[in-house]
Design a protein around this nucleic acid. Structure first.
Lengths: 346, 346
DNA sequence: CTGTTAGCGCTTTCAC
DNA sequence: GTGAAAGCGCTAACAG
């Protein structure tokens, strides 16, 4: 019941109690060597007695650095982004930085105010998963602090970014399906306006070209935004006169929607997709998933950012682009045993 | 290439350019009515030209309020907590508050420094999922700002909290298994030192007592911390001389571990568990899951906190305890019935 | 309608 | 070893 405004004791209060000036309190708390042991002890005693905590806001103002970085993700409910956030946090913590987190909900129009708000709060840098391709507000933010892009690249802005091997992963996973003889692979994709959507389609396409065939346009569905829309699209495809014999999905939510569609349709089809997800190994489905370390995207982004912060004085290095590697994980029937769903019953 | 220290233009700079004092700039930016239109326009022009942004750190210091709340969760990678965080963020945003997020990684010994750090940053309040039962540091934090507990109750501290109906949910789900005639239901639980662990065991037990039987101690495993330990425990149980005929799991990770164990053992057993999870409906397993709205826990916690903030002056209300309701969801059961309460209105 | 003064809590600089 | 003064950027309170 003690939380009052104007928030608690100050260094002056501590000093008064310890019979020293605020300056000396400051020195003690900073571990400045030039303080006598007896004084030091009295100060610590006063700090304890008052429950004193140094006001970081005042320090930030004086020192010119808030000790915070901002992170903006599009959907924290997606494990991909919560892991990314954990990666950012992990590295930030190592450098004594805290994380201000905002969720754009994939609404590009909300992003500017989130970004501006973080800048107002004097974050020392930003890591952003941009929700849209209009990035004017990010250019604006870059006038104030370094900005690192994660998962999606900057559009016409010169700055660091950390991406996944979208093209490579999609190509490789698609190639797995094609290698099994499938020629009618459906594509279930997120909006092509998103970098990942475009790149993964490109990879899907490239895998086809490499074996000299072209995907059937009738099997391509884009603009899927969640599990539900993906499920509907998959059901549509399965109901076509010439249905696909395999599916490729560009992210975890789409894969899950497609899997639900297969389940409801009582069918099983080989499915390849970007992003691994919980229990993918026990579905008993022939799955080919592009897996990668989402935490690592966050860690790398944080490292790039912190590197900028530490060299803010020196000539800035050219903007860097890091790709986090992918690997293909196969579940169910990699090479043609037991093509059904049932989990290895007795 | 522009991000320098001492971060950019101040109101004085803007004022100079607009030929007014800093005070007038402040008024314009605050939408104070007492400013002439011509002045207002000049100020806005100068703001735009300089790319000026109000320094929130300085405002915080002056106004006595950081505009931030702190959230500490135990594991952001668990969808339960990322959704909780989203709920907090949602309500916080409505009130113009930002969220400083820390992840304790379920390491109780790391929690104090996280909490202290947030207090140092002048968060106006805290929402905490406590990692341990030693909560001295939280009592300390409460001397500075209001603290709301989420998902786990305070231990001997007088403050608000938002919980799940742990006991009720566990009892109901267990009762479903018992109603099907199972008398040997295994219990796979998280550490009993955790409130949820204890409550859910209590519910499990109560369901047995209600039909006049007692659980077999040989079927009870506690202290499971992740999917892997749960899997191992489940495999152990399945290998016993008198194995269980059904399983009860106290959270999503444990359920997933148990499901993996069943899959590897080539068996199928009815499984009940706390927390719903992605694709639970398409596993084709007889599942009875205790589902609830994790976002809502965050929203409610944020509301309690903000209520405290808004009434920090008036006599504080007695500490409140909110329970978020659970409902049982059944998958893959031949009967397909939704037992217990009616399908929870919504 | 606009400006001046003072001070939020802290720390850098300079004095003793 | 310690303290006094000044100021980080902003805004409430008081002029004018």
């Amino acid at each position: 019941m003690t939380a009052r405004r104007g928030s608690g004791p100050t260094m002056l209060d501590v000093g008064k109690l310890a019979q020293v000036s605020a300056m000396t309190v400051s020195r003690v708390l900073k571990n400045d060597p030039g303080v006598s042991d007896s004084t030091r002890e009295r100060v610590y005693a006063a700090v304890d007695q008052l429950g004193y905590r140094r006001n970081q806001t005042a320090r930030s103002l004086r020192l010119g650095g808030s000790g915070m970085i901002g992170l903006v993700v599009t959907n924290l409910a997606n494990p991909f982004y919560s892991r990314l956030a954990l990666g950012v946090q992990e590295v930030a913590t190592q450098y004594g930085l805290r994380m201000l987190l905002s969720n754009s909900g994939e609404q590009a129009d909300r992003e500017p105010e989130l970004i501006d708000g973080l800048v107002d709060h004097q974050v020392e840098g930003l890591i952003v998963v941009p929700a849209g391709s209009r990035q004017q507000h990010l250019a604006r933010a870059m006038r104030h602090v370094p900005v690192v892009f994660a998962a999606r690249p900057p559009a016409g802005l010169d700055t660091d970014c950390v991406l996944v091997e979208d093209f490579h992963g999609a190509r490789e996973a698609t190639a797995c399906l094609l290698a099994e003889g499938h020629t009618r692979v459906a594509f279930l994709g997120n909006p092509p306006a998103l970098y990942t959507g475009a790149e993964r389609l490109r990879g899907f396409w490239a895998a086809h070209e490499e074996i000299g065939i072209a995907p059937d346009h009738a099997l391509i569905r884009q603009g899927l935004v969640d599990s539900a829309t993906a499920e509907q699209a998959a059901l549509d495809l399965l109901g076509q006169a010439e249905p696909p014999t395999a599916l490729f999905c560009t992210n975890n939510r789409i894969s899950q929607g497609a899997i639900r569609a297969l389940y409801k349709a009582g069918t099983t089809l080989p499915l390849a997709g970007f992003d691994d997800f919980d229990l993918s190994d026990v579905l008993g489905l022939p799955l080919t998933l592009v897996s990668y370390d989402a935490d690592e995207i966050g860690r790398q982004a944080a490292r790039l950012l912190i590197d900028r912060l530490e060299h803010h004085d020196t000539a800035p290095p050219a903007s860097r682009r890091i790709s986090v590697p992918t690997r293909v994980v196969r579940h169910g029937t990699p090479s043609g045993q037991q093509p059904g769903r049932p989990p290895a019953d007795a």
